[in-house]
């Protein structure tokens, strides 16, 4: 039997935080443990879970993608305007996914082929993509979509909301891709030691590109859900989406310098954020305070992870 040492698992810190918060909330609010609320938490976390998947792939290579929010805006605006112009819903969705993968491709190309730092590249493309969306849309939101599209945001199957189902499918596929395929295997290795990977004859360019394109793809899926749920595509959409995804990933013990981390950890991180937001809303915490508390929780989770790291190195 293989022994699993939970304390030394990278997901330890964030799991403890999640369980602790869960218990605390169930005492503080009688509504918290209701089936309706639990589904609601999953629904609210679904986009973050999906975003954090792609972000994990990027971060384990030692990179970062700040442009996620802008990619979602570009993709949302494109889908919305195509549908408004009478294009078939499925074609519009495919176009939206292609454009977000293309945005990821641009990031990946600049980072891998031109060797620019990912922080700066994606800081620039964050502005470029949003600028493009503003120019294209004239700065106005586009709203009102066919029912078959809105279903992806607000519909449900057997009382499970569609976004939750989509998120689950994404999680299952991505855990497999991360653990079992060349992409995940080499992404971690690249973040761990780029030179060593190069010396083993592995095509770094290919895998780094793939990683940013995967991030583009998951962002595209998240964009579909948010656009469908809000029934509107906003050219000034949330820029902080990217940073929230980064926070969810980093909380789970994934090092920003690359080489360690897992999709599972990122999912737990996103759930933690979801539970926290939901709990604070149930307890009528003012939204200003919510931001403050979320920041503190991120620090606590990272701190627990640091203690765990120090401990396992001393051994």
């Amino acid at each position: 039997m293989k022994k699993i040492n939970f304390f030394r698992a990278p997901e330890f810190g964030v799991s403890v935080a999640l369980i602790g918060l869960f218990i605390l909330m169930s005492f503080l609010s009688p509504l918290f443990l209701s089936g309706y609320n639990l589904i609601n938490i999953l629904l609210q976390s679904s986009t973050y879970m999906i975003l954090s998947i792609g972000m994990t792939f990027v971060i384990v290579t030692g990179g970062i993608d700040l442009s996620v929010g802008s990619i979602a805006v570009v993709s949302g605006i494109l889908m919305a305007s195509l549908m408004k112009n009478g294009v078939n819903v499925y074609l519009a969705i495919i176009a939206g996914l292609i454009i977000s993968i293309f945005c990821g491709f641009i990031n990946g190309f600049l980072v891998s082929k031109i060797s620019l730092p990912s922080f700066i590249v994606t800081l620039a493309t964050m502005s470029i993509f949003q600028g493009a969306a503003l120019i294209f849309s004239g700065g106005l939101p586009i709203y009102g979509f066919p029912k078959s599209f809105s279903f992806l945001g607000i519909g449900s199957v057997l009382s499970v909301p569609v976004p939750v189902i989509i998120a689950l499918i994404c999680i299952i596929i991505s855990v497999f891709v991360f653990k079992k395929t060349k992409i995940g295997h080499y992404a971690l290795a690249i973040g761990d030691n780029r030179q060593a990977v190069k010396m083993c004859g592995i095509n770094i360019f290919k895998y780094e590109m793939l990683v940013y394109m995967i991030n583009g793809f998951t962002t595209g899926i998240a964009a579909i859900i948010t656009t469908a749920r809000l029934n509107s595509a906003e050219p000034l959409g949330s820029m902080s989406m990217g940073l929230d995804a980064v926070a969810a990933v980093v909380m789970s013990g994934t090092s920003l310098s690359g080489g360690t981390g897992s999709v599972t950890g990122a999912i737990i991180g996103s759930l933690l954020m979801g539970v926290l937001r939901n709990g604070m809303t149930l307890l009528n915490v003012q939204s200003y305070y919510q931001n403050l508390i979320i920041g503190i929780v991120i620090l606590i989770a990272v701190f627990i992870d640091k203690i765990r790291n120090d401990y396992s190195y001393k051994k």
Binding site: T181, H185, L188, N193, A196, M199, C200, I202, G259
Partner: peptide, 29 residues
């Protein structure tokens, strides 16, 4: 440390790092 090993990775991964078909079957480990 700089050009040889992936220091955060397992011994198994480091030994098999340059391997292609020996450990991958249609891209799956």
């Amino acid at each position: 440390k700089r050009t040889g090993l992936s220091l955060k990775s397992s011994v198994a991964k480091n030994i098999t790092l340059p391997m292609k078909n020996e450990i991958f079957k249609r891209g799956i480990i």
